[in-house]
Computed example of a mutant assay.
Amino acid sequence: MIENTTRLLPTLVYIQTNLAENLSLEAVAQQADMSPFHFHRLFHNSIGETLKQYTMRLRLERAAYELRLREDSILDIALNCGFQSHETFTRAFRRHFERTPRQFRKGNGNRAHLADDSEHGRLLNHMTQTYHLSKVSIQQRTPIQVAFLRHIGDYVNVDMSVYDKLVDWAQTNGAYTGRNLIIGVGHDSPDITPVEKLRFDACLEVFEQIRPFSPIGYQIIPGGTFGIADYTGPFGPTMYQAYIDIFTQLAQQKNIEIIGLPVIEIYHTTKINPDYALNHVEICVPVKKVVS
């Protein structure tokens, strides 16, 4: 992560859960208990974007993702992502993606990361390991409180040793029971978000609210309705193919609308071992039941 970013983790969590709300400099600085001037300087120096640039990018990326998956009107998607009008949204979207929302939806967006000549495509073409994926089932999940460490960058480069750091922290602070769920949360689509800006949270379940202590943050992973499948296999490129299979299964289900993000991975183990070939992971994709 960029230096000092961890100091802003509570604010980043607030932003990601309130994208449709007022995220002006004054409002977010007040939430962070800082003056607008000092907050602006800290945020820009730490994140590499101004608050306005950061929130605009997240809103546009969420909108692009929803345009790909949902049949809602463009106006409804714009409003859901924090834009005040169709015109404002269309201008901002075109500047960012170099096409209108309608063109993006019609062309199914920029799918370069899924093409055979993409980095992921090359990895898939050279895979020798296999995996097993169960049939997707629709289930309800309750919210989960977690301590977390954030990774910024390509998902395939997540250093799984961060989970050891979380467990060490929990043991030192009396938060480890041996029953804590070990979780990964992917907030962005690699088909839409630049790879260097992808957000992944390595999480350890906690059973009461904790005070964020750099570099460890606190958040509540939202509950709700999920399409859930059990994956058994190695970490890495095969999981990318498993996600394609899961989304394909969900797209074929009636009365289900894919929300898609954030994706939650629950690791059924007491220790993450990236070299182990038979990892058991419960992959949870947010969905919504639709009444026909």
Rank of each mutant, 00 (worst) to 15 (best):
A112N: 08
S46D: 11
E26H: 15
I264F: 02
P143I: 10
L8T: 08
V167Y: 08
E119V: 11
T6P: 06
K135L: 03
Y155S: 07
C203D: 00
V290R: 13
I216H: 11
N180W: 01
D168H: 13
F93E: 00
I2V: 13
Y155Q: 08
R62V: 09
R122Y: 01
A229G: 00
V291A: 14
G260C: 09
P237N: 03
A112E: 05
D117R: 06
S46M: 08
D117A: 07
K165L: 15
L58I: 12
T55Q: 07
K165E: 15
G236H: 01
T6M: 09
Q31C: 10
F39R: 14
C203Y: 02
I283M: 11
H120Y: 05
D230T: 02
L25D: 04
Q16K: 14
Y14V: 14
A277S: 14
R141F: 06
L123D: 05
Q249L: 06
N45Q: 15
R94D: 03
T225N: 05
I216W: 06
G107P: 00
A229W: 00
E119G: 04
L166G: 08
S85P: 12
G178A: 10
S137F: 03
D159G: 07
F235Y: 14
P190F: 07
R179W: 04
R68Q: 08
A112T: 12
S137H: 09
D72M: 05
I228S: 01
Q145L: 06
E21H: 15
E265C: 04
L25A: 05
Q140H: 12
N273Y: 02
S134K: 01
R91E: 02
A242L: 06
A147E: 08
E196Y: 10
I221D: 05
R7N: 15
R41E: 10
N157A: 14
L12V: 10
V136S: 00
T88L: 03
I2C: 13
C284S: 11
D159I: 13
D201P: 03
L181S: 04
E3Y: 09
A20F: 11
P10E: 12
I182G: 08
N110G: 02
R122F: 07
G153E: 12
Q31R: 15
H96Q: 07
K254N: 08
Q171A: 09
A115L: 08
R102P: 00
L278A: 10
Q140L: 09
K288I: 01
G178L: 12
P237D: 03
T269M: 12
T50H: 15
Q84E: 08
I228K: 00
D191N: 13
G223S: 11
I246H: 03
Y176N: 03
V290W: 04
G48P: 12
W169C: 04
H187K: 11
H96T: 02
V162G: 02
T100Y: 07
M56V: 12
Q139V: 13
G227V: 00
D159W: 10
I144C: 09
D164C: 03
Y14R: 13
L9V: 06
D154G: 11
V291L: 12
E66F: 12
A147C: 15
R68S: 08
E71R: 00
G236P: 02
Y14E: 14
K289Y: 11
G82I: 01
A202H: 03
Q209L: 14
T172Y: 06
N279G: 07
N18I: 05
W169K: 03
N173D: 14
K106C: 01
V167S: 04
T142L: 14
E61A: 10
E208W: 13
G109W: 00
N80Q: 14
